[in-house]
Design a protein around this nucleic acid. Structure first.
Lengths: 199, 199
DNA sequence: GTCTATAAATGGATAGAC
DNA sequence: GTCTATCCATTTATAGAC
């Protein structure tokens, strides 16, 4: 019995547009936005570059679609954590577990961090979206920290927002390092964070 | 009276080779290793691409020179912190202040993090050097944490290495974010870290 | 929606003259 | 050490046929 089998989903083949987005998201998380090209995409899908341009005339169009994709991905994750978690700490645990599953094991970054690889070369329209995605994430973690402090789950007298940024930076930094130094550092760092904020 | 005026240094003009390295280091810290080209360098120095290739035949040669440059930069910083610091916490403070001066104010990354922007595209010879640079930094911070714990400067029962990675990730993550979100987040995050590890 | 063809710029690299 | 000239692959992008 699989919990995901609820709605007996029809498996429809992905549209070309969707396939482009999925593959681009993979490449983005591995190499950054400047780290893959229309040629890469065309080869992967077995179509020509011109066909890729039909779906996304300029690369910035593809970039903005990737921002939308990232936002969906995030919102889904977060609403799932909120619905299922048994405590505020458990929300963070689920966040960390998702990072491990989707990024650590695949040696990739989270899609937001991935945009940071080429930050200075991104068009302003994408930079703005990245900033908004950051804020969305930071707001959510801040709320978890604040609730956790009020609940006495976490040690008192902390700044929830600074605690949230500390948590996010540690988590993402550890994903960066894991690509060269392996997974252990990620897990030890997260464990250390837990040890520091739990009374 | 300037403390740096000790040896009355002759100001010799930098060799072309050295100018290439300095400019490349700047570009590396702004855009990553794939984010600048021999054309950029040649334009900046007013010479041709071919001349740049004379000094560094392949880009990997330039990359390895940048690793050497980074190592010197690091060793100098760290030996300075060790010599001048008045406590283990003060060593970390000096490290953070150096990060602010050299990176935060210039909207750039530290040179090690900068290599991470293109990590998957780097030649193996450079990846190895980056890993060694990471380890050098992590070892130093770990030692500071361990000494600080033994001195009761920091709270007891912590894992010095995990504490060190938490500190480094927070610091570098905050530099990443500062490029989009401004300096405040950096300073609040560092302050929060201090609050967490001091008894 | 997909293709062929093509454009103009860039990126890394080399040969050989001065 | 620097230059001119050149090479070839890649990158983003467009025009127009099917």
């Amino acid at each position: 019995m699989n919990a995901k089998a609820k709605a007996a989903p029809k498996i429809e083949p992905l549209s070309t547009r969707q396939q482009i987005i999925e593959y681009s998201a993979d490449m983005l998380r591995a190499n950054g936005f400047e780290g893959f090209s229309y040629l890469d995409i065309s080869r992967h899908l077995g179509i020509t570059k011109a066909s890729v341009h039909h779906h996304f005339p300029k690369k910035v169009d593809l970039g903005l679609a990737l921002c939308d994709w990232t936002q969906d991905w995030f919102e889904q994750g977060i609403s799932h954590f909120d619905a299922k978690a048994t405590s505020n700490w458990n929300k963070l645990e689920r966040y960390v577990r998702a990072a491990m599953k989707h990024s650590l094991n695949e040696q990739k970054l989270c899609p937001i961090s991935a945009f940071y690889s080429d930050l200075n070369k991104l068009p302003d329209s994408i930079k703005e979206r990245v900033k908004a995605l950051d804020d969305y994430e930071l707001d959510w973690v801040t709320q978890v920290m604040q609730d956790g402090i009020e609940n006495n789950e976490f040690t008192a007298n902390q700044n929830p927002r600074a605690l949230a940024s500390l948590f996010i930076f540690s988590c993402k930094g550890a994903l960066y390092y894991a690509r060269l130094h392996g997974k252990d550092l990620f897990q030890q760092t997260m464990k250390q964070f837990e040890h520091l904020i739990k009374p």
